[in-house]
């Protein structure tokens, strides 16, 4: 369970880093954008997972 969550967060991190680097060149801007995107995507995933758990009872 914990390793699955870690792997999903890792995947979200990679998606954030790649999407942020498209059409941007400044490393600081890329990092700032990646952190923001990671928080958005991670937050949505956690909320969706929690609601899914409440509705279905699955973990």
């Amino acid at each position: 369970m914990a390793s699955s969550i870690f792997l999903f967060l890792l995947l979200i991190g990679v998606i954030s880093l790649v999407c942020s680097a498209v059409r941007r060149d400044d490393p600081r801007a890329i990092l700032r954008s990646a952190v923001r995107l990671f928080l958005y995507l991670g937050g949505v995933t956690v909320v969706f997972g929690f609601v899914f758990h409440l509705v279905t009872g699955l973990t």
Binding site: S4, L7, L11, V14, I15, V18, C19, A21, V22, R23
Partner: peptide, 23 residues
């Protein structure tokens, strides 16, 4: 399934990288 998801995501993200290289 997790392995397929990781590799497929990496492959699909390569489309974004292609668009970036083109730009």
């Amino acid at each position: 399934e997790l392995g397929c998801l990781f590799a497929a995501t990496a492959a699909l993200l390569n489309v974004l990288v292609m668009i970036d290289a083109d730009g």
